[in-house]
Structure formats: C-alpha cells, structure tokens
C-alpha cells in the first residue's frame, strides 16, 4: 500500500493543513496528522490512549471540517494530542479511532492552540494520479 503524507500550506494569518493518500480514508488520516503538527511534532506524541469518534455531514468537504473540529474539541477538552488515526468513510458518515496522549508542555513544546477548522481553501478531491487530497485552513 502506498503511504500517505501530510503537509502545511501557507495562509497569511493562520495555517493550512493538507493530507494525501491512496484512499479518501488515508487522506483524512494524514490531514489529522497535519493538524497535530500545527501544535507539535507528531513524532513526540505517544499513541498510548485511544478514543473513538463519529461524524456525519451533508457532503464530504463538510465532513472533513467536522472531522477536524471533532479532533480539535477532543484535544481541547481532554488536553490531549493525537499521533495515530484510523478513519473509515462510508458515504456521509465517518467513524474513526485516534490514539494519543495527554499534553505534556515540557515535552511537546506546543506552538499554538487551534481554535477551529475553517471552510477556507477547503478541498476534498481525487488527483490526476489517483491519489486523494483533503485540505483546509485552520484558525490558530
């Protein structure tokens, strides 16, 4: 299986997160890693505690925003960071498992808090090479 990847793209005030993968599921997993990377290096986050999430939205782009916002909510209320994700998309429905650990300021050196995922530069699409891409700007 091809491994996916994530990257950040520039937005003047905030930060863009982009995930790419051989499947839509993988693109969603990668963009979630990109979200963690806004805060800290995902390699510093031990995937020791698991949570499950589900989302539902009228279309796949709104579903991406919902997915990232669900993670932002869990990060904020559980004071956790996540570094491993498994996503299953079925139509308008997403179910996911995320693994991570409780934030440790001394070890994770968190750069910034993410306030929310936005509809700016929002795109979920299959590329010419067959890979899937999922991206949007997050407000920090």
């Amino acid at each position: 299986m091809l491994t996916g990847h994530w990257e950040h793209f520039s937005h003047e005030a905030d930060m863009g997160v982009r995930g790419a993968g051989a499947s839509l599921d993988q693109a969603f997993e990668q963009v979630a890693l990109g979200l963690t990377a806004v805060v800290t290096d995902p390699a510093l986050v031990t995937p020791e505690k698991m949570i499950r999430l589900t989302c539902e939205a009228p279309d796949v782009e709104l579903l991406l925003v919902d997915w990232l916002n669900a993670l932002i909510y869990e990060m904020a209320t559980r004071k956790m960071l996540f570094s491993r994700f498994e996503v299953r998309l079925k139509g308008k429905h997403l179910s996911a498992t995320a693994w991570g650990e409780v934030l440790d300021v001394a070890r994770h050196h968190p750069a910034v808090e993410v306030k929310g995922a936005t509809y700016t530069a929002l795109k979920v699409a299959q590329q010419a090479d067959g890979d899937w891409l999922a991206q949007c700007v997050v407000d920090v």
Partner: peptide, 30 residues
C-alpha cells in the same frame, strides 16, 4: 477562549447548511 471558538464552529456549520434554504448564495462558504 474555547467557548467562543466552539460557538463559531457550530454556527458556521449550521449557517453553511441553512443558507440555500434562505435563498442566500454564498460566494465563499466561510
């Protein structure tokens, strides 16, 4: 803080979905 961020997140979503029903054609979903 988090309260404001969450209000923004939730109402943005509701308004994106409701806009066509109000006859509003959004030039940008944001």
């Amino acid at each position: 803080r988090g309260l404001g961020h969450q209000i923004g997140t939730e109402f943005l979503r509701q308004m994106v979905i409701a806009a066509p029903g109000y006859g509003i054609e959004l030039p940008d979903r944001e």
